[in-house]
């Protein structure tokens, strides 16, 4: 299994919003909720709008699930599982992500569906 990839520093993230990173040649949208010190990583491709735009969507929660709303057609995707709330048949890959010594690290080999999320920061 590949090691975790160092992506950027926590300061590069946008609080309560998203950025996109290139990890293992994949476009990874990274969302940051500083109050919960939570980070999430989803593939940046919106399969419904068919464009690499999810990092530019609004985030928040719906029925207690953390979500991003696609900026194109506003469908919501669960930030932990990638499942689309409006159409459960649509899922985007969700990757493992963690904050380690103020660095943001992503592991695209681990889908979060497989493991419990390790978002505990060492801050």
């Amino acid at each position: 299994m590949t090691p975790w990839v160092d992506v950027c520093s926590v300061d590069d993230l946008q609080p309560d919003s998203g950025v996109c990173a290139l990890v293992d040649n994949l476009q990874v949208a990274i969302f940051y909720m500083p109050r919960e010190s939570a980070v999430y990583a989803l593939n940046n491709y919106d399969p419904i709008g068919k464009a690499n735009v999810l990092s530019r969507g609004l985030i928040g929660d719906i029925n207690g699930q953390p979500v991003v709303a696609s900026p194109l057609y506003k469908q919501h995707f669960n930030l932990q599982t990638g499942v689309c709330l409006e159409d459960e048949a649509v899922t985007i890959p969700a990757y493992a992500i963690r904050i380690h010594n103020d660095r943001v690290e992503v592991n695209t080999r681990i889908m979060t569906a497989d493991i419990a999320m390790d978002t505990t920061s060492s801050r």
């Binding site: 609004l58 928040g60 929660d61 979500v67 506003k74």
Partner: peptide, 10 residues
């Protein structure tokens, strides 16, 4: 309550 969403935030 909660964290907000794409309706209330904008």
């Amino acid at each position: 309550k909660g964290r907000g969403c794409d309706i209330c935030k904008p």
